[in-house]
Design a protein around this nucleic acid. Structure first.
Lengths: 151, 151
DNA sequence: TATTGTTATACTCTATAACTATA
DNA sequence: TATAGTTATAGAGTATAACAATA
């Protein structure tokens, strides 16, 4: 994955500008780490995201598309490739025969677990902060993102 | 672009976990905003990133690959497509005849400027914070990223 | 010999449109 | 008729390997 180059704005004060650039750095680092962790398990980023979702609960294909914010037709291929590797399986939905539920297999859940534990990026740099600092950061991010963001 | 699902770790305290998730939200939002801003100008994310770099200064193809953290062969195609639209041009490097310098055209710089101004994501949520809060956020992000990060 | 950029190839992700089976 | 999932297609990004021109 490529790095994100923050396109800093002109009519903005230097402080905001610096924060914007710092956020850009965080975003770039996070992404890189995520893709590398996925690649270490021979997964693409999209496959890792789907597997992470399915490790939580079986999910209709349609819902996966909404979570990934992509067209439903794309999910077919992503799940196909995960299924070919035995990490995911498709089940019928008893309630609606049109629906297929994608579900992680036991091996899929194990892979998702290893992947999750390998994703040290966000934890490791946070370890440099004291508990008070982490609390302050949490409150600032919350305020920045607004109420609706805390999904 | 798909959303990033933060794979939260088990053996981590709830506070750190929440900050990790908040950062995941920021990352997902930032990316979405970036891709959408690029799409409004009929550019892909990769094209927008290259154009943003070239708006600063003409750059050897090899350097672009390093900035994007991808193989040099990929840069050929990305610059090809930008060049076909008149946003970028290739120039010889007087110092080394093996090197080609990619450079934004006047139209390319104008597009990069509009794109940059359209990238309101990082500015708009930051507007919710006071100057003191932005300063605190800056210092926390700096500490989190370490010294080497402030490029 | 090593480096720069390119070409050729193959895979994945992406959107669009048309299809099927259900509802 | 509307919805869920699929297929077919085309464009873009990506890595790998091989190549020409230049250092």
């Amino acid at each position: 994955m490529g790095i994100l180059v923050p396109m800093s704005s002109r009519r903005t004060d230097p402080l905001t500008l610096e924060v914007v650039e710092l956020i850009g750095t965080v975003v770039a680092r996070y992404h890189e780490e995520y893709e590398q962790a996925a690649a270490r398990h021979s997964l693409t980023g999209a496959q890792a995201r789907v597997l992470g979702l399915l490790a939580l609960e079986p999910t209709p294909m349609r819902h996966l598309a909404r979570s990934l914010r992509c067209e439903p037709s794309n999910v077919t291929g992503i799940v196909d490739r995960l299924e070919a590797r035995g990490l995911v399986e498709r089940r019928p939905d008893p309630a609606d025969r049109r629906v297929k539920l994608a579900a992680a297999t036991e091996e899929g859940r194990a892979t998702a677990r290893r992947l999750r534990d390998a994703l040290g990026f966000a934890r490791e740099p946070l370890a440099r902060l004291s508990e008070e600092e982490r609390t302050a950061l949490r409150d600032l991010l919350r305020r920045m993102l607004g109420e609706e963001a805390v999904v």
